[in-house]
């Protein structure tokens, strides 16, 4: 039996299939096939994007639509996934997926394109406590992306540049718009790009850390979401949290979809 999790994020759609392995006395779940589908401008209609991503993922996995017993959607656009039988919040899906990948994780920090959140998870992956910033994009990936554009760096170079800096430049602005103006001021002051990159990522980490502190930081801490790919942010977050290590899952952007697929398997 297969189940599917589909994560309709703000920037991309992620699909994960799970295959249930029949092991006598101990049913286990095995990773299925993963497929992402970036929403290009022509796919801004979320219904179309969800259907396209799911169809492509099925083809890639060599699965017929009928082979999938249950589909659970998550993410900001989860209610747009018409073919899903159920939907769960990104908080529950993120916690479930992260604890599945790192069973020792008790604090899950999820930083995606549009939102960051801190989640305290139980050993079974259920949410104990969570906090997000409902208001501001400054604690999310889109903020870092916007600032990298201001510095005329690719996202990859932006993250790597920040690793070359050891300077701490505080950014006071709480808002993306004002922060961009601060970045422009730093550029005009001939501040090296790597120092500005570190200042931006420190600011994002500080906002995310404030959310994590609301729920209480308990080790191990695992970071999920697209910002895992930014090594500068990972370093800044580790410093802000004051922990020895931050666990980084493989394929971090798929963790929410994996959690949804796991929940689908539990419901099925």
């Amino acid at each position: 039996m297969y189940t599917a999790g589909i994560d309709m994020g703000a920037r991309s759609v992620k699909v994960v299939f799970l295959e249930e392995l029949k092991v006598e006395g101990a049913p286990q779940l095995k990773w299925g096939v993963k497929k992402t589908h970036i929403m290009f401008p022509e796919d801004l209609d979320m219904d179309v994007a969800a259907e396209k991503a799911y169809t492509e993922a099925l083809q890639l996995a060599g699965l017929a639509r009928e082979a999938v017993g249950r589909v659970v959607a998550t993410g900001a656009g989860r209610k747009q996934v018409k073919f899903a039988q159920d939907n769960v919040t990104e908080v529950s899906a993120g916690a479930r997926g992260a604890v599945f990948m790192h069973p020792s994780a008790r604090t899950v920090i999820d930083v995606g394109a549009e939102e960051g959140r801190g989640i305290k998870a139980a050993p079974d992956g259920k949410v104990v406590d969570f906090a997000g910033n409902e208001k501001c994009a400054a604690g999310a990936g889109a903020f870092a992306e916007s600032m990298s554009r201001a510095l005329q760096l690719s996202l990859k170079d932006f993250g790597e540049a920040s690793l070359r800096s050891e300077k701490t430049i505080p950014m006071n602005a709480q808002c993306t718009v004002f922060a961009e103006s601060e970045v422009v001021s730093l550029i005009h002051a001939n501040t090296p790009k790597e120092d500005i990159a570190k200042a931006v990522l420190d600011a994002v980490a500080s906002r995310v850390c404030a959310m994590a502190r609301r729920v209480g930081i308990e080790e191990d801490v695992v970071l999920i979401g697209g910002m895992v790919h930014n090594p500068g942010f990972v370093r800044s977050l580790q410093g802000a949290l004051g922990v020895d290590r931050v666990l980084l899952p493989d394929l971090p952007e798929y963790v929410g979809a994996l959690g949804a697929a796991l929940i689908a398997a539990e419901i099925h």
Partner: peptide
């Protein structure tokens, strides 16, 4: 579960 709804901004931390 304790669910915190709200935000933190320059003027303070507002969570229910």
């Amino acid at each position: 579960m304790i669910a915190n709804y709200g935000y933190k901004d320059g003027s303070g931390e507002y969570y229910i």
